[in-house]
Design a protein around this nucleic acid. Sequence first.
DNA 1: ACGTTGAGATTGCCG
DNA 2: CGGCAATGTCAACGT
Lengths: 219, 219
Amino acid sequence: MRIVVADCTVDYEGRLAATLSLARRLLMVKADGSVLVHADSGGYKPLNWMSAPCFLVDYGDRWEVTNPKGEKLVVRFAQILSDQAVDLGSEPGLAKDGVEAHLQELLAAHPHEVEPGLVLVRREHATALGPVDLLCQDGDGCWVAVEVKRRGEIAGVEQLVRYIEFLEREGRHRPIRGVLAGQKIAPQARTLAEARGLRWTEIDYDRLRGLGSGTPTLF
Amino acid sequence: MRIVVADCTVDYEGRLAATLSLARRLLMVKADGSVLVHADSGGYKPLNWMSAPCFLVDYGDRWEVTNPKGEKLVVRFAQILSDQAVDLGSEPGLAKDGVEAHLQELLAAHPHEVEPGLVLVRREHATALGPVDLLCQDGDGCWVAVEVKRRGEIAGVEQLVRYIEFLEREGRHRPIRGVLAGQKIAPQARTLAEARGLRWTEIDYDRLRGLGSGTPTLF
DNA sequence: ACGTTGAGATTGCCG
DNA sequence: CGGCAATGTCAACGT
């Protein structure tokens, strides 16, 4: 990686056009060729960047970075204050815990947390439109399709509607109704779900995690 | 800004839990307190980070970064190879051109570019499901809801369907039909739009920009 | 190879 | 201030 601190202007032309006027900034050139332009604030996103694969030509007073899609980033230097090269080696990678997959796993183990009386029949039930997260049955034998989202939004409701429509039409799981389950369900998603005749429910992830991922103890 | 190159491990606990095993990485501490952990590849996004507002305590062999929401990032150092402080000053800011807002503005000024004979009645017409980008009428007095997208995809079609349904049911704008307008309309979006009885049209942004944003000259 | 989906987002707008 | 949508997403996964 190459780390440069410099007074510069930056111009990007590609998906849109974006310009940075003269100021002091941090530039990173990663081993894969990608270029990042960072200011001293503004969160984790660079002001401007070019993602790999791309090609950098260093003219000394400016960099021209292009990629195969025809996008172009030009950095013009007024003054270079620091220019440092370091070899970082390879990255062993990031391990994550607590994403949607975990929520789905926990709800699969505890379907009654979605709705009392619910029994899991199949997880990731395949349809032509994609997999239904949890396919269940309630105490009356009615099928229940559960869509699990970390955060439930309108797109999740639409997705669930498509599954329900498909399963209704396909005929082997009738009657069927749908439930959107998530840590948070957005107000507009609630409104749309209700308008579409679907239930929604907010799940307490911490409580659920406390129940464990195995079969719950009965006594 | 403080720029550190070091062999380290990183642990994050917050919205989720994420762990990085020992490797050489670039750490940035911005003036607003935010911390970024970058590898030598992987696009513009850091492996791990903590956004401002947050608070860093430097114990020499480790950093503990916390924020008011109770999230925590811990960096443990095995070896620090470089530690550099630079003053970047303030950032004059990024100027963008060519995003969805521009396209909508231009189409509001030139609705006939969406469809000949179209007249704009209201921009950003509010409904309970969200604002309709352009509410127009055609030469026959039929209402036309126009959804503007930089890139038209399936979600845009679904969005337009919801608006049409709502406006139909609500009754004050009947009859009504819908048009999806964008610089590019994805093949799947075209298919779905047609299946749903909606029109779609691709807009030549450069040509539209040439027409200007004011009222078009008649003669 | 391409389409789909999820993600610790961030910003701006508007109610 | 909160809800909501857009963003030059990006990466992983499945067909």
